[in-house]
Structures are given as C-alpha cells and as structure tokens.
Amino acid sequence: MRSPRPYSPATGPGQSLTERRKAATQLDIARAACALFAEHGPDGTTAEDIARRAGVALRTFYRYFRSKQDAVAPLLAGGGDAWRALLEAEEPGVALGPAIERAITSSLTLPDGEEGLEWTRGLLRASADDPALRAVWFQVNQDSEERLVPVLARLAGDSADPLEIRLLAAAATDAIRVSLEVWSAGDAPQRGPGSPAELAVRCLRELTGGMAVLRRG
C-alpha cells in the first residue's frame, strides 16, 4: 500500500544486525530507484543505474529485487506499515471506525518537509505508462490488506464475523489506495481539502457505511 510515508525498516530487539543491514540496504536501493524514476522515468532507468546510485553491486540489487520496478516496493509499502502499527497499538474492543480513521489520518499527514507523499505521487504517475510498476503497486496493496486482517480481528474480538473483518480490511486498504491514486493524478496539497487524508476518510465512510462490525462498540 505501498505508500504515503517512506518505508522504515523495523529495528526491534528481536532483529539481528544482519537483518537490520539487509533492510537498510533495501531501503537505500528503493530510494535510489525512486529518485531515478523521478528524473528519467522507468523506461530511462536501468537496474545498473539504480545499483550505481545506491552504491551497491548489481548482484546485490538482484539479491533483493527481481526487477527495477520491484525496487520501489519498500517505499510504497511504508504507509501501510505505518498505519497498521498505529492500529496495533489500539486496545481490543475499541470502536473500529474511529480507530481506523485516526490511523489513516495520522499516517497520511506527514510533518512538513517529509517527501514520502510526493514520492508516492511521482511513482503513481509513472505507473500510468508502466504496467510492471502498476503491478508492484497492486501487490503492495494486496499484501497490506492481508496483513491488516489479523490486526482488525484482534481489535474486533472473537465474536466478530470473519467475513466482515475481511471486507473491512479490503475497504480500508482500498480507501487509502483510491485516495492516493486520485490525489496523485491532480495537484491538491498534502493537507486540507483534497489531501490524501481527507480523501481516504471520505472513501472509508462511503465504503463501510453499512458494515455491522462498525456499529458495535
């Protein structure tokens, strides 16, 4: 999903130094790919260019990514990681609708000076003419939706209908996806009317208005 906020590799106490270095290298490559796509477009960028910009060998690039388009996945996935983490911090039994809206709004409202949303805008615009880049975007969103299901299930409790939880995960993920696609196609600002956060909350309410799981709690 993706990804409104630049991907930040997890560095929890259970992660080894090797895992942290791997995540940092992936992020360096992803940032290099994003910068080169913005400068030259996907067609004008090669895997060799990305590896050179990231300061790694070409074999290192292919150790982590299958193609130049795959290299941007960590950046696109960062927003989903950020807002799922906010939901994971909520306590079971919380009113799901407001909790989801809080997480979406917070993750799509970046501090001044952060470029994550503009990177996403550039990548989504580039994907209009690049089917492989679009495929990466859709896969990121699919992965994010699947990871969201257990988070929502824990918050909703054992009595929640699994079908409703799946539908809610799909609706929340699509609300963010559609909002970013619409925003990226225009010139609206990062905050205020027409911003990703405003559009995403609007989409979420439209998609989930009849869901019983949101009327409980």
Rank of each mutant, 00 (worst) to 15 (best):
M1P: 07
R2N: 12
S3W: 13
S3E: 06
P4F: 09
Y7L: 13
A10T: 12
T11M: 14
P13A: 05
P13W: 10
Q15A: 04
Q15R: 13
Q15E: 11
Q15S: 09
S16W: 14
S16V: 14
S16E: 10
L17H: 15
T18K: 09
E19D: 15
E19W: 11
R20Q: 14
R20E: 13
K22W: 04
A23N: 08
D28M: 04
D28Y: 07
A30T: 03
A32K: 00
A33Q: 00
A35R: 12
L36N: 00
H40T: 02
D43C: 08
D43S: 13
T46H: 01
I50G: 00
A51W: 00
A51R: 00
R52N: 09
R53C: 01
R53K: 03
R53Y: 01
G55N: 09
G55V: 10
G55L: 06
R59E: 08
F61P: 06
F61I: 01
Y62W: 04
Y64T: 00
K68T: 03
K68V: 01
K68H: 02
Q69I: 03
D70G: 01
A71P: 07
V72S: 00
A73V: 00
A73G: 03
P74C: 04
L76D: 01
A77R: 08
G80T: 11
D81H: 03
A89W: 09
E90K: 11
E90W: 05
E91K: 14
P92H: 09
L96C: 04
L96R: 00
G97Q: 08
G97D: 10
A99G: 10
I100T: 03
I100D: 04
I100N: 03
E101C: 11
R102Y: 02
A103K: 03
L108T: 09
T109M: 05
L110H: 02
L110V: 05
P111E: 10
P111M: 02
D112R: 06
D112M: 08
E115D: 11
E115K: 08
G116F: 08
E118C: 07
W119Y: 05
T120Y: 08
G122F: 04
L124E: 06
L124T: 08
A126T: 07
A128M: 13
L133G: 03
R134A: 14
F138C: 06
Q139M: 13
Q139E: 14
V140F: 10
V140R: 07
V140H: 02
V140T: 14
S144K: 08
E146N: 10
V151Y: 09
R154H: 12
R154I: 10
L155Y: 00
G157A: 09
G157V: 11
S159W: 02
P162Y: 12
P162C: 09
L163Y: 14
E164N: 11
I165S: 04
L167R: 15
L167C: 15
L167D: 15
D174P: 07
A175G: 14
V178F: 15
V178C: 15
E181N: 14
E181R: 12
W183C: 06
S184G: 15
S184P: 05
D187F: 08
A188R: 10
P189A: 12
Q190P: 07
G192Y: 07
P193Q: 15
G194M: 12
S195Q: 05
S195M: 05
P196M: 07
P196V: 01
E198V: 13
E198G: 12
E198T: 13
V201A: 10
R202G: 15
L207R: 15
G210R: 15
A212N: 10
V213S: 03
V213A: 08
R215M: 13
R216N: 04
G217V: 11
